[in-house]
């Protein structure tokens, strides 16, 4: 039985609109699963013993669990808001801990160096103080008032703007980012990172978006986001150690890493350690 406390969570395993006609083998928390289409055209997910696993179809994806989830999948109210375009970005397989993929998504200080001239650029490298909290009522990590100068914040952006961000971690391998919508400055674009933990050191990343953008083609929006994730992958596959350290004794976190530290504390408090390294090495 892999996964410990993470076993009872929901995980994305497929895009709901692109179910595999002939079925597809995959992994979840190191255990084999099979994703197939049933007689009615719906999804069916089974484990290695052929047991039918619970599923939810939401936010463009099929979600499943090897355990017994006590709670429904976390809410994203914006998913139902009129005027947004919902974008199934696809999947990117990454040779890194699923927790490292989430941590990187929560990071803004890398924008000028990894997403150069798109999400950031020198000399605009300073990370201003922002706010981070663990909201006890919903048991989520939140970072707010995050501001960063961006040369091209989104496919819909014309030139550089200071973008405001909020980050939310509602489950150990999922994060939701809210950022200033370039065409509608009063609204937030929603970009999510849903991560399927294949093993402790490999994951499938399923980004999904709910954007205000009436002009860009679907293909352009998908390509923009895929380009960003491919840039992130070159980082994620080259961090030492491969697992996410829950002891920072071999690292030097600074105030710019405040969201990372809050995320790791939250993982530690809940015993969400699949993909984590407990002792610094």
């Amino acid at each position: 039985m892999n996964g410990g406390a993470m076993r009872d969570q929901w995980y994305p395993v497929a895009i709901a609109a692109q179910l595999p006609q002939k079925g597809r083998d995959s992994l979840l928390l190191g255990e084999p699963i099979h994703i197939a289409t049933d007689e009615t055209g719906g999804a069916r997910v089974t484990d290695g013993a052929g047991r039918i696993l619970p599923i939810i179809s939401r936010y463009g994806h099929i979600w499943t669990s090897l355990g017994q989830p006590e709670q429904d999948l976390f809410p994203i109210p914006e998913a139902d808001q009129p005027g947004r375009r919902l974008v199934d970005v696809g999947s990117v397989k990454v040779r890194c801990s699923p927790l490292r993929a989430v941590e990187n998504f929560l990071d803004i200080a890398h924008f000028p160096f990894v997403h150069t001239d798109i999400l950031g650029s020198e000399p605009h490298t300073e990370v201003e103080r922002y706010e981070v909290e663990i909201r006890d009522d919903v048991d989520e990590v939140w970072a707010t008032k995050v501001k960063f100068y961006q040369p091209q914040a989104a496919k819909s952006a014309q030139g550089g703007i200071t973008t405001e961000y909020m980050y939310r971690v509602p489950s150990p391998t999922c994060s939701i980012l809210y950022k200033t919508s370039p065409p509608r400055p009063g609204e937030w674009d929603v970009i999510t990172l849903f991560v399927q933990p294949l093993t402790e050191e490999t994951c499938e990343v399923w980004p999904w978006m709910a954007l205000f953008d009436d002009d860009s083609s679907m293909t352009d929006m998908i390509h923009f986001q895929q380009m960003i994730f491919v840039q992130d992958r070159s980082i994620l596959e080259n961090q030492i150690p491969a697992l996410l350290p829950l002891d920072p004794g071999k690292e030097i976190p600074t105030r710019a890493d405040m969201t990372s530290i809050a995320y790791r504390r939250w993982l530690k408090r809940h015993g969400y350690t699949y993909g984590a390294q407990l002792v610094a090495a």
Partner: peptide, 11 residues
């Protein structure tokens, strides 16, 4: 930075 590291601390 010291505060950040100590907030997480050893396991």
């Amino acid at each position: 930075a010291m505060e950040m590291a100590c907030l997480l601390g050893p396991i």
